[in-house]
Design a protein around this nucleic acid. Sequence first.
DNA 1: GAGCACTGC
Length: 997
Amino acid sequence: MRLERKAHEPVLATIAKETEEDFDSEDSSESDDADDDINPDLLEEKNLVMESVDSNVDTIECKEKDEYGNNSRKTLKTEVNEDKREKIPESKDKTLTKNVAPAKPDSEPAIFKEVKRDPGIQAARLQLPILAEEQAVMEAIHDNDVVILCGETGSGKTTQVPQFLYEGGYTTKGLIGVTEPRRVAAVTMSRRVALELNMSTNVISYQIRYEGNVTDETIMKFMTDGVLLKEIENDFFLSKYSVIVIDEAHERSVFTDILMGLLSRIVPMRKTQGNQLKLVIMSATLRVEDFTGNTRLFPSPPPVVTVESRQFPVTVHFNKRTPDDYLNEAFRKVSKIHRTLPPGGILVFVTGQAEVHGLCRKLKKTFPLISEKTKSTHNVEGKDGNSDEEDDFDLDNYPVNPAVEERDAEDEDLGEEIGDESNEFDLDDSAFTSLIDKNLPMFVLPLYSLLSSQQQAKVFQPPPEGTRLCVVATNVAETSLTIPNIKYVVDTGMVKRRYYDKVTGVSSFKITWTSRASADQRAGRAGRVEPGHCYRLYSSAVFTNDFEEFSAPEISRRPVDDLVLQMKDMNIDKVVNFPFPTPPDVTALQSAERLLLNVGALEEKKTVKGNINAVITPLGRAMAKFPVSPRYSKMLCLGHQENCMEYVIAIVSALTVKEIFADDSDREAGEISKEERRKISRLRRTWAGQGDAQKLGDAMVMLRAVGASEYAGCTEKFCAENGLRHKGMVEIRKLRAQLTNSVNLVNADAKVVLNPRMSPPSPVQCKALRQICLSGLGDHVARKSPAGNNPQLKNAYSCMSLDEPVFIHPSSALFNVLPEYVIYQEVVETSKLFMKGVISVQPEWIPVLVPSLCTFSKPLEDPPPRYDSEAGVVKCHMTCTFGPKSWQVPPQELEYPTGLDRFKWFARFLLDGKVIPVFSKFVPFLLSAPVTMIKSWSKLQPRTEVLLGELVSGGADSKMALKVAWKKDPMFLLAALKQWIPQSKHAELSLQWPPKE
DNA sequence: GAGCACTGC
């Protein structure tokens, strides 16, 4: 274990300061002594962090222990709050600890939970480097509110630290909570720890989005980071927990980042409450400056404890020259490894599905799994689960061996690679033998996230006898999936990332160099079972000069509207001041606020100081309850119209789960997929239907896809036959269930049920659904541009926030329909700017459903304003322009704009007897014409002024507001109205006051 | 007339 001076020192000082009053001077100085004793040594060791444990460290640990031991005894006498210190085993020898503890009669007995572990498990645990550091880790946690624990993969920290905390008695004070960035990790870790502790999963449990096994007995809970974030929304202080462990903090998922920001505030608050919450941040890399060096996050930097990893050494080989074609280079490198190096799996990192399949195909052709001889005598199809790939080799025109073609190119590369040492693994050409390729079978497997579960599962099986496993993977293999028995990693150094334009919101995908940290992570995948080798297909100069050190955290690369809404719902008004580990871009925050204002989740209010602040509205509060993008939660909030809720839920689920169509993901790219693609394309058109259904466009396709697959029981077979991605449909199914639940929770009257036999929406419902979608996607409207003579602009649309023309994506159901006005889910830039997820809308809906983006004229005189007795409001016609480009949209009758004139018109209709029916009998006796109210000379008459003044003071400019005013004061308006009728009628009016209807 | 890495509520 190492404690870094910079990080550690101020913390001890802070503790001493905070408890100053309770300490006598001697105690304080001892605290300082401990500090001084530790740090000089540590300073020298700063550069040795990755080296193995040496004797120096043991000395340090002994000193620490003594000092902390002294401190703890003295603290006990003076501190009122119970100190957990005495519960921590003070020695690595557990037996000793247990015997020693009762010898302190004045202290609470040490809590040390004994665990009866399986001897096999215990033996395996003892191999883990972190086990040697148990005491150091626990002391650091004990002595500090927040501790950062650094350990590379293989240190065992995820499974062991929760067990240390259990043994140290933390479960007697509350739950131990552990967050993971992925669902599988939460589930498997909880099972593993339950097994190691020899305890039931009722006690060591997990909770992920759609499922969990938490019970009343649960003492330790593994969960995804988003689950804990949701819990904070309901219980800000996390009062159930005694300690929170954030695992994989270096991955910097948005939820992890926000959790850290929140916990940095919750931890000190809990301390003040006298109910201490501990925070342990676990990170695989030493990239912790964002946490330690961020004084807004942690005013006094938490100590960093580093543990060794048990990774096997991986020798890294750089290319001398960086090739232009990294795919071709990857093919050559894999070929060389396969031909010349000892057995062991190969893992290749490329950037996308197409690359995965392309490389897989080339490798399979070069190193066929079945030798020609075997093939001619046996029908081996299906023998090893690799059958579908063999189709390629049955073709008569068996391809020329690419490896042979490229020998010349290989020769140029002789000896170009530089290795750390000169040995066989350097792959120079002397090792390049003339073995015949078909005698070197290679078991080639693709791996990427969208691949079906069965296909993915193949990489975990041992390859067929006598073959070498070669997995061609995207970034999934970097963190999410760990492939066993990989000895060689081939790293192209490339990664495909999604980019969002912070201003326009347009997304695009770019292939770039990955980061040094990520390249190291890839290399590490070769050293999990034995020493391995990583072949980087780029030069060390490129690695050093062109790679960024770390990839930017997710929060700085994506829109943050959902996060801003969640935070506003937690009453964090000034999101800019939130202690983010890395703050999101200011423009991203502004865009988020603008969007939330547009959908009505926020409204601008003046603060006491006169600043304008965007505060959450009741609608925003309701929206925040839904675990989907704010655009979609707005749709859910309007979904009750025309009984559309079940459809809205299905559409929102499908919009949230991307890529519901399988495309050619399960097949090799090539001729077959073209046929397949046409079929899917036809199917989409069929699903889109005609008329009102077709106008619902891609939302209709989604609705049909969800409806049909649900009807068929969401089976794999149905999905495969209809070009649907099964994993995606299963996710939609779960999300529908969750959203149905949420809708019923937010609105008890909703009473939506999850209907497996959802019938298609009626024409009226289709129209309502388009309107509901418009209300959420009001800032994603596009209208057809006149093409003129420019063929480039054929079928082009103009969208409100972009200068360039956009086009309906060819995969859309509306691609050939080309409606005048559409809304879209997103714009993606590829060869053009394409709108995806397209729905047709009517321009006259815009002023009604997206008023926040409209600029209205003054109310028109013709047609004149009228009173809508059904709605109880004054309505008028206004011309309207929409969006920053001021598109003219048809004039609409809308509620009269708020302001004095609205009161005048309301008064006028009131006097007309239109608002209160009982008043109509007095209309013939009115002393002035009601129209006086809206005349410019109305001020000449005192009764107009009195009535207007009364209405304004009561805020009564609608029927609803009038009723509210009468609740407060039943005599409201009576005197003012009396002035409009003769004295003789006053008594009669009084008798009817306040009016019933 | 096209081609999207990855993940959490």
